[in-house]
Design a protein around this nucleic acid. Structure first.
Lengths: 135, 135
DNA sequence: CTAATTGTAACAAATATTATTACATTTAAA
DNA sequence: TTTAAATGTAATAATATTTGTTACAATTAG
């Protein structure tokens, strides 16, 4: 995760959690994060697909949480934005004629999956409500 | 971690764990991984700094583990190769005039640090010996 | 109607990662 | 003592990923 996707998503969701159900525009949110509004809208598309937010188009439109902040687990947020695996890419071209090369990726996959599972359990214990309660 | 650094490091270390203390050359290791020998030597420099391997220069030179595979924890390997934080970068330019923007990075930092700590405890329970026992 | 907004595609710019070349240095062995 | 085989590392190039931008169609309240 050498990117800002999770940070951006949590920032967006924290703002929405504090908006009391009011619709916030991508432009307004972008101003708080310090990024381009299109970045926000793209991230919104991802959060929307995951059922975390809902948007209304058109004048006076905007976005709000699709369910209470108490019911949004941080694991859901992570899974929505996640692309690459937590611990990295596997090896791309291991040599199948080498006993290690032949099996390394299975072994890495197992390790990485287990690590990710542990992380999910950790994040599942935390809610957006808790995370954003300090603001 | 959208890179292959940990995978490469674990591949290298697994080969060394199976070499019975024999010195392996970066060229040979590179052939098993399927990357350029210089990539291996660069990663070696990192593992060496962490005290996990030792190298001998010159003809008939190469690299071997600096301590038994039973004593190398995967958390040590992770910490040696890690650059970015586990869950990503913080927001770069949050708006300090916004209550959320002002504190978001502290909050993200706390969350990310906790997640990383959990991961370290998980990886500290695993050794290179276990990881490479299947080869 | 009109103005404000979302949604998204297409493209550009910036950054990060991986690969390559080159060569100085080291060292065993012929 | 010379040579060949290594490491170590700097410099640079090539790729891939991430982030930013522009443009515009579609939607909708007023």
């Amino acid at each position: 995760m050498n990117n800002t996707r999770l940070s951006t998503a949590l920032h967006i969701l924290s703002l929405l959690a504090h908006s009391e159900g009011d619709l916030l525009t991508s432009e307004w949110i972008a101003g708080s994060i310090g990024v381009n509004p299109v970045i926000v809208r793209k991230e919104m598309a991802v959060l929307k697909k995951a059922g975390l937010v809902e948007s209304l188009a058109g004048k006076e439109g905007g976005t709000r949480l699709a369910k209470p902040a108490q019911k949004i687990k941080l694991s859901e947020v992570y899974q929505a934005v996640q692309q690459a695996t937590l611990l990295g890419k596997k090896n791309l071209q291991p040599n199948p004629n080498c006993p290690v090369g032949k099996k390394i990726n299975d072994q890495l996959e197992a390790l990485y999956a287990e690590a990710e599972e542990k992380l999910m359990k950790f994040l599942a214990k935390k809610t957006l409500a808790e995370f954003s309660s300090v603001f």
